[in-house]
Design a binder for these strands. Structure first.
Lengths: 338, 338
DNA sequence: GCAAAAAATGTAAGGGCTTGCATTTCGCTG
DNA sequence: CAGCGAAATGCAAGCCCTTACATTTTTTGC
């Protein structure tokens, strides 16, 4: 299992091919700067030795890595998967590699991951949302690492982002729900403290309530950690509220699916007894029964545009501009009249 | 956004702290080899400069990265997420970092990812399943990168793995289903060509059928790509088969959930008209309605054990030994008598 | 208070690659 | 075929760390 012969280096390839290391390097990185026959010799030598360039050495010498880091709150469910997939595809098409890390929604972990990716030489970073310790932004500026934010869009923000207006999206949904006659609303939210998307979504509902003259403090608000079971548990708390809500918004589809499961377990009919509304429109939303009414986020478009923006910035020095993408209400079967 | 001052290096820290680079390096990597006051000075300098060590340089100098690569077929659904999470936690506890890459079930992509992770200096690799191009194993041996396989267990295999017996697990489930009276069986399988887990699961059913005197070629076998929609489409094909099967096995829960959705869309009652059986027991299985009968895989245990084994190997030079974990049938509500 | 051991620190040699610049080779033109 | 510009290649200086070894400082025992 352990080979005794040493790991081949550029030098070994050069010697075997009978050329200099510079030529080998160019044959690998800029093939058309090298004569055809030379290139063939080099490739043969590479194949024969099973050579693989040492990334660290390369990064150090070239001062770039063609790597872009993405840090997301969780990989456990598909919320970020589709967008990230599109992001990665876009990068790949342009010769960049994506490195992902996840934070389990812990700001400390995020900070650690940011440092780790920067140390690993990420040429740029994709982060979710705006809100984080300013010291981190200082660090990133100091390290000269461009940052693009996503999953949120605030035209007033100082940092560029590719995302959508969480507040407006949720407000639109809430208006719809209110228009259907719902008056007693509840929200099962992800933890808002460190999560600007969650708090924006909450704001959206409150604004719709105020606009409809409902008094935004009548909202039955429950905050919980992320997860299907957490959504289920939160649903119990919401249903225990007096007066019992007729429509339960959820900060994301994962929570909504948990709520929906719990409703079934308790024999509460959806949407007969209560309506449940999600956010994100992940695949899950169409699989559960009844199919989930939710806010569709154009994940792939968002990921793709983020990738394009970052590549353009890195390659051509184009400034990173804010880009807004648009959500859409998806009315399926968990929403009905009260 | 772009700082003009250059990115701080170890040397800068050393100068500012008034010590040598060696001392700074030690202060970072082996804090207790350095006097208390010196360490404080160094830390202050690091903080002041916003210094972050250059991973590439460090990897090159130290000839290890404390990084372990994991390559999985997909991140899109939760199949591998939980196991990987546990794997990562175990590594983290021991000072290692995990780097994930996904292949979209493409062998070529896997090969590329393997090379990329090796180039990035992965000290070891975690791969899914046994079956792959032997040249890759040669390459890894040549690069002296230890490999641990997982998600499969074959005591006869030459490579060590931490996993479960896919064939036996599926066979056990099939025996159960046959015992309940089902005679016309179908299987919606992931593509078996490059996927030894999928083909082992298929074999398991066939063996159970043979043992029960059913004639394993009466199995209605449909192969499809991975995905909920793919599972749904495959379900249509299976249901069109004459005679119509009474029990539909699925190679994994994602396909099963797709099949289940399609059944509902078509007004086919589950388990009244047809039983649907999954494999993996991911979170999804409990959320769908009716809750999915499936084979439980101890994902967390498997991930944890894989992490432990790899850490022990890297740190103490302990040999990588095969470890088997055990699956369990989970009888929920999609399986009933024919 | 001194010698010897232990602790702390410094010195300097790489580690594998890229790239600016210098040199050689090649293909043409006149 | 001399002469010239372009293409191909080579040379060698870094890039930023770690670590074996050497040196200095501190501690310890008597």
């Amino acid at each position: 299992m352990t080979s005794q012969r040493p790991i081949p280096t550029l030098q070994d390839v050069a010697t075997l091919a009978g050329v200099s290391t510079a030529t080998v390097s160019r044959a690998i990185n800029f093939p058309d700067q090298v004569a055809h026959v030379t290139r063939d010799k080099v490739n043969a030598a590479i194949a024969e030795l099973g050579y693989s360039p040492n990334f660290g050495a390369r990064a150090m010498a070239a001062r770039r890595t063609n790597t872009i880091g993405a840090i997301i709150p969780t990989m456990e469910n598909a919320i970020f998967a589709r967008g990230l997939q599109a992001f990665q595809e876009e990068l790949r098409r342009n010769g960049y590699t994506m490195l992902v890390a996840s934070t389990a929604y812990q700001p400390d972990t995020e900070e650690e991951q940011i440092r780790s990716l920067v140390a690993r030489g990420a040429d740029a970073l994709l982060l979710i949302g705006y809100r984080r310790n300013p010291a981190i932004y200082d660090f990133l500026d100091g390290q000269d690492v461009p940052v693009l934010l996503t999953w949120a869009f605030d035209p007033a923000a100082t940092r560029p982002s590719v995302g959508f207006n969480n507040s407006a999206a949720m407000q639109e949904m809430a208006e719809k729900v209110i228009e259907m006659g719902h008056r007693r609303l509840a929200l099962i939210s992800a933890e808002t403290a460190q999560n600007d998307r969650a708090s924006a979504r909450c704001d959206g509902i409150r604004q719709a309530m105020t606009a409809a003259g409902l008094g935004s403090d009548s909202l039955c608000f429950v905050e919980t950690k992320y997860g299907i079971n957490e959504g289920a548990a939160a649903f119990d708390r919401v249903m225990a509220h007096v007066p019992r809500p007729t429509a339960v918004f959820c900060g994301n589809d994962v929570l909504a699916v948990g709520a929906l499961r719990r409703a079934r377990e308790c024999g509460i009919s959806v949407p007969g007894d209560v309506s449940i509304i999600g956010f994100d429109d992940i695949e899950l939303a169409q699989v559960v029964y009844p199919a989930l009414t939710t806010v569709h986020v154009p994940h792939r478009e968002m990921g793709r545009k983020a990738g394009q923006a970052l590549v353009k910035h890195l390659r051509d020095g184009a400034a990173l501009e804010p880009i807004e993408v648009h959500t859409k209400l998806v009315l399926r079967n968990t929403l009905g009249p009260p």
